[in-house]
Amino acid sequence: MQRVNMIMAESPGLITICLLGYLLSAECTVFLDHENANKILNRPKRYNSGKLEEFVQGNLERECMEEKCSFEEAREVFENTERTTEFWKQYVDGDQCESNPCLNGGSCKDDINSYECWCPFGFEGKNCELDVTCNIKNGRCEQFCKNSADNKVVCSCTEGYRLAENQKSCEPAVPFPCGRVSVSQTSKLTRAETVFPDVDYVNSTEAETILDNITQSTQSFNDFTRVVGGEDAKPGQFPWQVVLNGKVDAFCGGSIVNEKWIVTAAHCVETGVKITVVAGEHNIEETEHTEQKRNVIRIIPHHNYNAAINKYNHDIALLELDEPLVLNSYVTPICIADKEYTNIFLKFGSGYVSGWGRVFHKGRSALVLQYLRVPLVDRATCLRSTKFTIYNNMFCAGFHEGGRDSCQGDSGGPHVTEVEGTSFLTGIISWGEECAMKGKYGIYTKVSRYVNWIKEKTKLT
C-alpha cells in the first residue's frame, strides 16, 4: 500500500490518463441519441435557420407576430419608411378606419389613436360632414345658397324668414311668412316636400332668348283662358290664391305678392273693366268669414305684352289694390325667389296649380277651390304637342294621358313649387288646347323671366 501511494504521488498524470480511459469505455446513459432527441424537440425550422439574422431580410411573422416588435424591426421587413409607417399605425392600436367614419364618399386613412378623412370636392370637416359648395344638395341650405369668396357655403332665406341657429334652416321672422300653410287642420295635408338634388348652379339658368321682337298675326285659340281631375282644397291650404270678379264672377285667378299687390295673367284683364279681388276665398257660393274683398285701382301688364300681336306672350300683369290686405292664416303671400332659384325650383319637376275653373272641358265651374299636382314636361315634348308657338318664356306641365289639367277660369292662378315646406311661385296658368285632352298640356308663363320686374313694381313704400 505504501508503494502504491508513492507511485500516485510521483505520477499524477498517469492516474488522470487511467481515469479518462475508464470513462470513455463506459456506456453513456444520461444523453439520448440524435434521433430520439429530435422526437422530443420537434420544432419547425425557421426561415433563416442556421444563418445569422443580421444578414437576412426581415420576416413579418418572425419579427412582429411571434413577439412584439419595434418600429426598427418592422422597418427591416418593409425596407421602406412609408410602408412601415402605414403598417405601424394599425399594428400599434388597430384600424381606426374600420367603422368607416368618413361621410359623403370620403376616404379614410388610419393613424395612431386617430384617423384622417380625405374629402371629395365640396366637403370638409373631420368626417367630411361639412358642405362647402352650393353645387351639392344646395349646400344643405333649406332655401338659398351662395358661395363666399373663400368658396364656403353661405345660406340665406327669402323675405319674412331668418336663418336658424344651425345656419342652414329657415324659420319665420314674421307672423305670416310667405308660402307657408298655417291653418292647423290643413298642415297635415301639406304636399310632399321637395329635397334639393345635386345641381350645376353655374349652368342652372337656361341660355334662352326671349323672342321679344317676333311679330306674329293673332292666333285663334280655343278655350285658351284655361282644375280638371283635381281635388277639393281645404280652407287655408292655398292662402296665396285669390279669385278675380268682373263682368262675371271667378273669371280668373291670381296670387298675393304682398298686402297691396296681386300677380295674374295679362290676358285676364281689360282696361276700363272694374275688377274686384277676393282673398281668403274657399267656396265661392258661401260666406265663410275668411274672405277679404278689395278693388283694383291700377293694372300693370308687362311692358312687352301686346294682345294685338299675341294674347299669351309675356302673359303676366300686376294688380294694385285700393287697401292693403290683412295677412292671416287664410290670406298669405306666395314666396318669389330670384331668377336663378325660381328656375331651379321649376326644374324640380312638379308643381301645384289651383283655381275655381271648370271641372271638365266646357263644363261647370268649381264651387270649392280645386288643386292638382302636375309634372313638368320637357321642352321637346311640349313643342311636338301643339302647332302653336311655345315661346321661351312659357313652359308645359300636365299629363300625356289627359284627364287632369287646369281649365277655363283658372287662368292667372299660381303654379307653385314647394321647397322644404315653403311654396314659391314658378308659373302662372296661361293657356292650353281644350282641357285635359290626351297628348295636350297646360301652358304656363315662366315666372323666372319676370321676377325682377315683379319685385321692382310691387315694392311697398
Rank of each mutant, 00 (worst) to 15 (best):
A279R: 00
H267V: 02
K188D: 06
A436W: 06
R384A: 12
K260Q: 05
V326Y: 10
S169Y: 06
V353G: 02
N113H: 11
S220I: 14
R191S: 14
D322E: 11
Q90G: 11
D378I: 03
E291D: 04
R226I: 10
E286A: 09
R379P: 13
L327D: 01
C335A: 00
E288T: 06
I112L: 15
S411W: 13
S448T: 05
D338M: 04
V451N: 03
H361P: 14
K109N: 09
P333I: 00
T158P: 04
S182N: 10
K339S: 15
G254Y: 01
S148C: 06
G421D: 05
D200P: 14
A250Y: 06
T381V: 12
F424Y: 10
R140Y: 05
L425D: 01
Q143D: 00
G21M: 15
Y352K: 02
H267C: 03
W453T: 00
S184T: 06
R404W: 15
G125A: 01
A149Y: 11
T186E: 14
G439E: 07
H400M: 12
G442F: 05
G402P: 08
T29V: 14
Q241H: 14
C117R: 00
E418M: 13
T81L: 06
V153A: 09
N222Y: 12
S184I: 15
N113V: 07
G229E: 14
G403T: 15
G13N: 10
G94V: 12
D322A: 06
P197K: 14
T194A: 13
C69M: 04
E10S: 14
V416A: 09
H282P: 06
I428W: 04
K146V: 07
I454M: 05
C128T: 01
N245R: 12
Y371R: 13
L24F: 12
V377Q: 08
E231S: 06
S448Q: 05
E98P: 03
R191H: 09
D223E: 08
E323M: 11
H302I: 02
P177K: 00
M8K: 14
Q167A: 08
V368T: 14
G21K: 03
K440A: 08
L367S: 10
L372G: 13
A26L: 04
N213T: 07
G357F: 08
P375F: 10
K455R: 12
L376E: 03
D150E: 10
A37S: 14
R140G: 10
L20H: 02
S49H: 12
G236L: 06
V368P: 08
T381Q: 12
V296G: 02
H314F: 07
C407R: 05
L14C: 08
T386D: 04
S187G: 09
P175Q: 06
S70Y: 08
I299N: 04
R75L: 08
V248D: 07
E208K: 10
L52E: 15
T445H: 05
L24S: 04
G355F: 13
W431H: 12
K126E: 09
C102E: 00
T381Y: 08
A317H: 00
Y441Q: 02
R364D: 14
K234D: 11
N393C: 03
G413W: 10
E193R: 07
D410F: 11
C382S: 02
R46N: 06
Q216V: 13
V183K: 10
H400G: 14
V447L: 09
V77H: 13
R140S: 04
I112S: 11
C28V: 03
K455M: 06
